[in-house]
Design a protein around this nucleic acid. Structure first.
Lengths: 107, 107
DNA sequence: ACGTTAATTAACCACTATGTTAATTACACG
DNA sequence: CGTGTAATTAACATAGTGGTTAATTAACGT
């Protein structure tokens, strides 16, 4: 179990946040595809992916010479849980329907 | 409007995360009280508070020589919104009652 | 005005983070 | 086997982070 600060640290870099969001939108992708979109070298991306992996945010699957990356749902849930644990601080200023409905049943 | 990576960066430091959680639990507190609990000097804490303020996570209220800090609900909501926007990735592995109930109505 | 207290800013140091290019590893394929 | 491709690790340069102590600013009490 990695610590919450590590999760936040992993997402504090624009390149890494973009990678996570792209993987969530498009699903599993090889490292090479992620390099194309980002304006950095392959080694730089490789290290960003290592940071994300060590923080538990993504997992790696090997297929031939490719390394396929995907987002770990559990990591996202860790953050979601944290916000829900402290929801008293943001529910007061709700104005989005989804958020409103999500708390409607008042657990 | 600060960027999401700034918010994550602000919470990626253990001292700052602890400050935010304490302010959420106890409400508005002066800088001095926050220094007592943390094992760092006053100037160090002052700079952490500056980072939190610039990221929009806390706000400062002046009262005499004291600087009273409190958490900005909007900042927390920014993170909550982000997780809700991508909830498809963590709702699959739900096992906590609160989270379960929160999505029960299937918005 | 003076001294005290609360907090911040300044100046400095050690360590980490992030980028680069070059070298290495591992698999695929003729 | 050699060659090519995918990706990582190595080595290095530079910028940013976070800690300290010393100095500064601002408000309060006498």
């Amino acid at each position: 179990m990695t610590h919450l600060t590590d999760t936040f640290a992993a997402l504090s870099d624009p390149t890494r946040l973009a990678v996570v969001e792209r993987l969530m939108a498009e699903g599993e992708l090889p490292a090479g595809r992620l390099v194309e979109q980002a304006d950095i070298s392959a080694p730089a991306m490789s290290r960003h992916l290592k940071v994300l992996r060590q923080a538990g945010l993504v997992e790696q699957r090997i297929q031939g010479t490719s390394r396929l990356y995907s987002v770990r749902a559990q990591a996202l849930r860790t953050i979601a849980d944290w916000t829900l644990d402290h929801r008293a601080f943001w529910e007061a200023s709700m104005d989005r329907l989804a958020t409103h409905l999500a708390l409607q049943d008042g657990d």
